[in-house]
Amino acid sequence: MPRKTLFAFILALLLAPPLAGGASAGQIKGTVKPQGLRSPEGVLVYLSNGPEVMLDLSGAKFVMDQRQLTFIPYVLPVPVGAKVSFPNNDKVAHNVFSLSQAKKFNLGSYKPGQSIEVTFDQPGVVELRCDVHQEMKAYILVLKNPYYALTDAQGNFAIPDSKLLAAHGIKGVPPLPEGKYLMKTWHEKLRGDRAKVEAPATGAADVTFRLKRGPSGVLYKR
């Protein structure tokens, strides 16, 4: 073996572990193609058996806003333990409440400018209503692990969803370990689907969901 080639080989051996370590974060990417919806945006895709990790939620900020008789956003995925604030930025009083099994609460009527916080400590679908304005409805989806994503306007998603995690200030999410996972979807107007996915050590697995209109399901079959 020529000396130059041997040097290059040794150098490659030395550099390989750190480089491989830096790119070991596996990812699951994909697309959701729903039938009968105007937009594929806002479909939740999550790993129902993803690794449960201790999250640093000290700097996290989850907000369910109220403006112009509307909850914003319509769907807010949060990890278990999230504290969600409900500011009233409207011109009329609102009364947020939920009778869902995952979280029952009633904030009572409160005026514009006020805000109340609620901690969501059980996984599941929490359906929000306003007792004063019956059109107002939204969902808080409480998830067991941070490996979830919301589809964008094109129906694309990536798990972990770095943009969503950053927007909510969730820190300390470890890279998705290599392994086999069960992926599921949730949308208010779509029948849920699931797929078995193998997350690679590096790079990304690719998944496509074709969803049909129908009743939504539960997040976890306990």
Binding site: L69, T70, V92, N106, S109, D131, V132, H133, Q134, E135
Partner: peptide
């Protein structure tokens, strides 16, 4: 929190179409 709710609260409430 539901004390004081009256018929008018729901049947004469604001709706998005009225904004």
């Amino acid at each position: 929190p539901n004390k004081g709710k009256r018929c008018q609260f729901c049947h004469m409430s604001w709706q998005k179409r009225l904004l």
